[in-house]
Design a protein around this nucleic acid. Structure first.
Lengths: 340, 340
DNA sequence: CTGTTAGCGCATTCAA
DNA sequence: TTGAATGCGCTAACAG
């Protein structure tokens, strides 16, 4: 015995009106007598009427729903980006269907399929670390569904993107290490598949070059972001004959893990080895020593990306522009590089 | 010029079949000639046909979508619970519509409305700290939409819930403080509106009573979980004539904040004051000193809750049972209470 | 085994 | 200003 959801027909019956009139009243159509409209609206309110979104979607082919795919929920980065995106969508009357790819290409493809099947009006995505093929996303373009990337973007697709200047931020972070007197700066880099990894690596390289420091390829380690491997790499670096005196990590979780290992090995931070991270995670301020890192406007990133997407949804496909928004970063100097 | 989504009609035309036959072939109905079925399936694949979920929802009144409302994304707790819930839903072929109430009652009500409007097949929710009225949730019951609570539950509603034994966990945490020799144990409690606050407070009280320690109401401070206020309360406690020698915090973020303040005031942890948290957040292991805390199976919580919900969806409303699942906790002893 | 028909709830023609 | 009729894409009941 399910309680019947109020429909237009119910209202029409009670008021002795036609369905179309009720529909018009409900949708704010002009050609309705004020009296009629009021009666309909009042009864709708009383009967707790809600438009059936399926019939509308069926007609309009729109869902007022945005798909959002992120690599994970573990680090504080994406949850915060989601908050920004959610707020922006909500303001515009859109819902958000969220899913996480779990850093897996296959899951990302599956997620994309779900989004497609749910006929989202647009897709916001930050790529998994494994993603090198983009067919699952190009499908959206073919269907005329706008896409916007943020943070982890696809360079070959000409769609709007929201990023920070990873090159510049990395450059500044490494330069900071140089300026405090460090000479052998290691880089625990991200997987080559991610543009942010490559950009941060380039920033690292160019900072060294600018300051006439030879690049030692042995000090550059690309890894797949599996935190448990950090221990191996850090030990390897510190146990080498000519160990580094500084470490620039691809992100904060990596840096935090590295700090743990370094401390366990009895080395002092920053005296023996200084550490810099990237992203300013929640824990970075609490860890001992507190972590010098690059702060990104994460929430704003989600917000800007969502608004870029909503712009496309509102506009004709012919007007879509592959705008790339670059947000500002800030180097936050803490005790892992400079003792306070 | 939008690319037309393939429909059953398209396939029917191309194959010179009726719509119903195509539909039957697509839905695995038995009464279809094997040859026909194969032809349909092949063409559907080729034309990248996808069922239009709106027409189906319109007919079945089901959406294969679960609503999920959490108070926030900031702490690591809810993101992890979401992961568990998401996985369980995904396995059963359900999508999840996620939203956060931002710890606001009004936002929670708005979120609930969105869920209702999107005709979710079920609702999973952890209450905001402000929620004292539950009409917005009872609406779901009236509509025959099952609800399951997790973590922050509504005691007055007879629906399934997934929790940990907060009373017992708090009792053990406080007993641990007593056993290491602490006598004046303060409690930074959560808002009275949340059942978990009350239960943890009761566990605190009973542990003291069991060990014949007088309860000093001045050592119990209920607060609204606004982290910025922790500083005030901790200072107040430590500056008092008879300061506490231990602090049991309602959750880890609170405990972590407290540790910061205590350290800044030049007190030693755990010698001057020991600290215990609740939840085992990501940062708790990194903070100095590392935080003794109660670990909860967060991901499992989301998973169990989702499965409980799916059970209800699959069953007739008459079979719904207000099952309460209590998951195990574990006290993780770290340096904030016992120096290693 | 296959085709025809009706209807899910609504917006939108076309008539009145 | 209102009503009747059509169709969005699909499933299901009813015929053949």
């Amino acid at each position: 015995m399910k309680s019947h959801q109020t429909t237009i027909i119910d209202i029409a019956h009670k008021l002795n009106l036609s369905k179309s009139t009720v529909s018009r009243a409900l949708t704010g159509h002009p050609n309705v007598k004020e009296e009629t409209r009021k009666a309909v609206l009042a009864l709708a309110e009383e009967m707790d009427y809600q438009r059936n979104i399926f019939s509308i979607s069926l007609i309009t082919n729109k869902t007022k729903t945005i798909g959002l795919i992120v690599p994970d929920f573990h680090t504080s980065f994406f949850p915060h980006a989601i908050i920004g995106a959610q707020e922006a969508a909500s303001k515009a009357g859109y819902n958000v269907l969220i899913s996480q790819s779990n850093e897996s290409y296959e899951t990302e493809v599956a997620n994309a399929k779900v989004m497609l099947n749910n006929r989202v009006d647009g897709l916001l995505i930050s790529l998994s670390k494994e993603t090198r093929n983009f067919d699952h996303l190009k499908t959206f373009q073919k269907r005329g569904i706008p896409i916007v990337f943020f943070n982890r973007v696809c360079e070959e697709m000409m769609v709007p993107k929201v990023v920070v200047d990873d090159y510049d931020a990395a450059f500044k972070a490494v330069e900071h290490l140089i300026l405090i007197g460090k000479k052998r700066i290691a880089h625990l880099a991200g997987p080559d598949s991610l543009a942010i990894s490559r950009k941060r690596l380039n920033g690292y390289r160019d900072a060294l070059i600018k300051h006439n420091i030879d690049i030692d390829e042995d000090l550059i380690i690309s890894y797949d972001l599996t935190l448990s491997k950090v221990r191996i790499y850090v030990k390897h670096l510190l146990d080498s004959i000519n160990p580094p005196d500084a470490l620039f990590a691809i992100n904060d979780p990596t840096a935090i893990e590295a700090i743990q290992v370094i401390k366990q090995m009895g080395k002092r931070i920053p005296e023996d080895i200084a550490v810099v991270g990237f992203s300013d995670n929640y824990a970075s301020n609490f860890i001992e020593p507190s972590l010098t890192t690059v702060s990104q406007p994460v929430k704003e990133m989600g917000e800007v990306a969502m608004n870029l997407l909503l712009d496309q949804i509102d506009n004709d496909i012919s007007k879509w522009k592959p705008l790339i928004k670059v947000l500002n970063t800030e180097l936050i100097v803490r005790n892992s590089t400079v003792k306070s």
